[in-house]
């Protein structure tokens, strides 16, 4: 197991280097740079050139790439073109809000989807099954920006139950209760979009397992529903769900771009939009890199969890 882990981690290194290179290429193909955007158009070309040299934008491509990589290895992600802050600090302070928002909504989505999906597979065409397909549709057909706007309109503007955005109330100490009040609406929006896909998967994989011979045997032995479903079926139906959980990890971090934007939630998604609009490439590259690392970790976690759930899968 530990040898398998080490091998997987070693394979990740060239993949990561490849990703940094592609990342750097894509972003350097972009027309225009931060100087065009931050300086008044009346400023002369000569002055702009000085500014570009100061930011190191005039160096050849490979020089800049290796320069960036060298600093990256030292833990320096560069400085934001927009605010001149260190990128590591800028991205770092956005990680926690995103993790809180994404983590809570993902946990809630799984906590709701597992029992609902299993119940709808055990009793097809029951009311639970209809509720499940309805929620499943919400996930595919309800864009987050629209559900977000509707929730803000109804729950903060019409009823004034929850704040319309931000993470803390201004000018207040802002304890845990305040944070929870701010989280309710964005968590609701994210859970609603995430739950659809999970529900469909839980339902179909449970249905598939319930059709197996050993489940018929379990029924034939006269085992109660509880034992058949939870002892014999559940573990086997979890495998595709774990794959998806692993694949969803990066979405949890980077995928809430629109929800964070709508609710002005100070996380990485909102920072992505800000960085794109201000052509702040160092920040954008750090965000992309972080997303890529998370994708790799998510896949690895899923592979390791297979072995935990299904003892037939072994790693040498």
């Amino acid at each position: 197991m530990s040898r398998y882990l080490i091998r997987r981690l070693l394979i990740m290194i060239p993949v990561l280097i490849g990703i940094t290179f592609i990342n750097f290429c894509i972003i350097n193909l972009a027309p225009g740079d931060a100087v065009d955007l931050m300086i008044d158009p009346n400023v002369s070309e000569a002055d702009k050139k000085v500014r570009r040299e100061a930011l190191g934008l005039d160096d050849p491509f490979l020089v800049r790439y290796f320069g960036w990589m060298r600093e990256l290895v030292r833990g320096n992600l560069g400085y934001s073109y927009a605010t001149y802050e260190p990128v590591a600090k800028r991205v770092g302070e956005r990680v926690k809000p995103t993790l809180i928002l994404g983590g809570v909504s993902m946990l809630l989505a799984y906590a709701l989807a597992l029992p609902l999906g299993i119940a709808s597979a055990v009793k097809p065409y029951s009311w639970v099954d209809y509720l499940t397909s309805l929620l499943g549709l919400a996930g595919v057909a309800l864009p987050t920006f629209f559900s977000g706007l509707v929730f803000i309109y109804v729950f903060s503007l019409k009823f004034d139950w929850f704040p319309s955005g931000g993470m803390h109330s201004l000018g207040q100490p802002g304890g845990g209760a305040d944070l929870v009040r701010h989280m309710v609406l964005p968590v609701l929006v994210l859970t609603l979009t995430n739950i659809g896909l999970i529900l469909r998967l839980v339902r179909s994989s449970t249905l598939e397992v319930l059709r197996q011979d050993y489940i018929r045997t379990a029924w034939a032995k006269g085992l109660p529903l509880r034992l058949v479903v939870f002892r014999h079926a559940l573990r086997n139906s979890l495998i595709p769900i774990i794959t998806m959980a692993g694949l969803q990890l990066p979405t949890l971090i980077a995928g809430s771009v629109i929800t964070e934007q709508v609710f002005q939630w100070p996380g990485m998604g909102w920072l992505t939009v800000q960085a794109i609009l201000s052509r702040d490439y160092p920040t954008l590259m750090a965000l992309n890199l972080l997303a890529a690392i998370l994708v790799l970790i998510g896949n690895l976690l899923a592979d390791v969890l297979y072995g935990v759930v299904d003892p037939r899968i072994r790693y040498e």
């Binding site: 894509i26 972003i27 193909l29 972009a30 027309p31 990066p250 979405t251 971090i253 980077a254 995928g255 771009v257 629109i258 992505t272 939009v273 794109i276 609009l277 052509r279 954008l284 965000l287 992309n288 997303a291 890529a292 994708v295 896949n299």
Partner: peptide, 17 residues
């Protein structure tokens, strides 16, 4: 398939204009 879809779409669109 392994990139977060919206993020990569956003970056590409912002670069192409």
């Amino acid at each position: 398939l392994s990139f977060p879809p919206l993020m990569i779409i956003l970056v590409l669109v912002s670069i192409l204009g």
